[in-house]
Design a protein around this nucleic acid. Structure first.
Length: 560
RNA sequence: AGGGGCGUAGCUCAGUGGUAGAGCAGCGGCCUUUUAAGCCGAAGGUCGUGGGUUCGAUCCCCACCGCCCCUACCA
């Protein structure tokens, strides 16, 4: 059986005599003073908190540092379960080696002069057996002082109990850290969603499912890095604080730099900086990082969210579509073991992606009850999308179907986009590439040579969610300036207020033909972990502050 | 922002117009292979907050706070 190398030598052994010298563990503060200070903060339950503070003193009295510096371990609980889960009692007896294991105590069963507990570490539990005869009087007193939630280390060897559970026969207990507050209920765990989000640390301890989701999220990001690294991309970090927010249409958060005395905006997209890098000769770049949008919160929106953005010189949006089909199939396979994955009540098949132009999608998902579907050619005519929308809306009003509400005057392209979102987007459950977006709603994409009203842009929609958005990047500085100015002229809170002149200047130095794309990591993770809400895949989603934080009606970011 | 739902012990949940209950956790006791350990005993609550109706409100009504879901917003 494998015996992993143990890195005991990395840190020189401590001088125990000096370390345990009298007074060494004298409390730095009085327990009751701590309790007085902390309880205005309302950490509950107070009785258990105080009980445990007293135990700290008793642990000190036994000669243990209640908060020691380290513990040299040989195996995690998870590793033991993995390696020895199948070993029989006699096998363990024959292969009797010393193990040193650390973990959090998640169950205790005390029985007079012996007892059992479960140590949880690296996501798995292993049982320990502590016998007074073995650990001695003091060791057993320490065992008695343990609470659920405490961190301990043990030294011992593996065996199987009468009921055949893999367990550690403990020779020595090392106290590692005190838990002053109790763990959630051991059987039902933590089910209150609000508590799960606010106190994610408890959720992670108590709910294996939650732990798995975040492990999977980490693997997804790992896989993505591997995918792009293998294709000659380099990873970069561009600014999160922008003097001019750009690269998307969204309301930014505002912050202030004191020394420079300027307002800065938390970025709504890294796009314009990444393309400056393409100008600079980084032909393949990607960034995985946060964007911030001062907008609504829902099961699909968190004010800060993680995007992968990547740019590839000398390619176009068709190349990206092909890359995406590979990437999504590969990810689904490596993360879930199959290209067909369960999401809610449906099976999503990532082995292929339907491709539809935006106009085709409108025609395909036009409700029969709303009358004859418009022709693709009709939608392309001036006023065509608008006419179709009003025909649809007339029916929607009567039938109670979603209404395509427009604010103000819309252009043909905006009508097309609106109609698409109203009737088609949420119908796109199976992975679908929707392409050829109207120019009017795609200020950063290159137009189609044969039809300047459309751009070489696509989105990947899965389970009705936009998970990716890519295009052939507009690199004509004159055309880019025209579109920026049009946006500014149009106004509105989510439109840029100011021309990003340096970006135009960068384009003037010549950006090679480039294809670029953003993939929403949070939504991708939702799909691959079968999570219905984005908050299930974000460790600390945005919530209102606890205890009724001040309601600042003077939010600068809103400018209202 | 609008609609619906929820808020009872640290956690998971019952419950009632007459002032509150269980399990787990915690406390005391018994128990040297248990495993949602068991047994005995004691403790733990401004029933989210504030008003109102009522002789009496945790329950009914109103407002507020927080969370969840749907809609809206989010190219």
């Amino acid at each position: 059986m494998p015996h992993p190398p143990v890195a005991f030598h990395l840190i020189p052994p401590i001088d125990l005599a000096r370390f345990l010298a009298p007074g060494r563990f004298a409390p730095l503060y009085s327990v009751s003073a701590f309790a007085e200070r902390i309880f205005p903060l309302e950490f509950e339950p107070r009785d258990q908190f105080e009980q445990r503070l007293k135990k700290i003193e008793e642990i000190r009295a036994l000669g243990h540092d209640p908060y020691p510096r380290e513990f040299r371990w040989t195996d995690t609980p998870a590793a033991l379960v993995e390696k020895f889960g199948g070993a029989t009692g006699p096998e363990l007896e024959a292969y009797k080696r010393e193990v040193r294991v650390a973990g959090r105590i998640v169950s205790i069963r005390l029985m007079g002069k012996a007892g059992f507990a479960h140590l949880q570490g690296a996501g798995k539990r292993v049982q320990i057996y502590v016998k007074k005869d073995v650990v001695g009087e003091k060791g057993f007193r320490l065992f008695h002082l343990l609470d659920l939630g405490d961190s301990i280390g043990v030294r011992g060897h593996l065996f199987r109990t009468k009921t055949n559970e893999l367990s550690i026969w403990v020779d020595e207990i090392f106290f590692l850290a005190k838990a002053l507050l109790p763990l959630p209920e051991k059987w039902h765990g933590l089910t209150d969603v609000e508590l799960r989000y606010r106190q994610r640390y408890l959720d992670l301890i108590a709910n294996e499912k939650s732990r798995q989701i975040f492990m999977t999220r980490a693997r997804i990001i790992q896989e993505l890095r591997r995918f792009f690294d293998a294709r000659g991309y380099i990873e970069v970090e561009t600014p999160m604080m922008h003097p001019i927010p750009g690269g998307a249409a969204a309301r930014p958060f505002v912050t202030h730099h004191n020394t420079l005395d300027i307002n800065l905006y938390l970025r709504i997209a890294p796009e314009l900086y990444l393309k400056r890098l393409t100008v600079g000769g980084f032909d393949r770049v990607y960034e995985i990082n946060r964007n911030f949008r001062n907008e609504g919160i829902s099961t699909q929106h968190n004010p800060e969210f993680t995007m992968l953005e990547f740019y590839e010189a000398y390619s176009n949006y068709r190349d990206l579509m092909d890359v995406n089909e590979q990437l999504f199939a590969l990810l689904a396979g490596s993360i879930t073991g199959s290209t067909s994955i369960k999401y809610g009540d449906t099976e999503l098949d990532f082995s292929k992606m339907q491709r539809l132009t935006m106009r085709e999608a409108i025609v395909k998902y036009w409700p029969k009850e709303a009358g004859e579907a418009p022709q693709v050619e009709k939608l392309a005519l001036p006023g065509g999308a608008r006419e179709a929308t009003s025909r649809y809306n007339a029916w929607a009003k009567k039938s109670g179907a979603p209404y395509a509400a427009s604010k103000g005057q819309l252009t043909d392209g905006e009508w097309t986009g609106l109609l698409f979102e109203t009737i088609a987007e949420d119908k796109l459950v199976q992975p679908t590439i929707v392409y050829d977006f109207p120019t009017d709603i795609s200020p950063l994409s290159k137009q189609k040579p044969e039809d300047p009203s459309l751009t070489e842009r696509f989105e990947i929609i899965v389970a009705g969610m936009e998970v990716a958005n890519g295009f052939s990047e507009l690199n004509d500085p004159a055309e880019q300036e025209r579109r920026f100015l049009a946006q500014i002229a149009q106004g509105g809170e989510e439109m840029p207020k100011q021309l990003d002149l340096d970006y135009i200047r960068a384009l003037c130095h010549g950006m090679p033909p480039t294809a670029g794309e953003g993939i929403g990591i949070d939504r991708l993770t939702m799909l691959l972990t079968d999570s219905p809400s984005i908050r299930d895949v974000i460790l600390f989603p945005v919530l209102r502050p606890e205890g009724g934080g001040e309601s600042s009606s003077t939010s600068e970011a809103h400018g209202r």
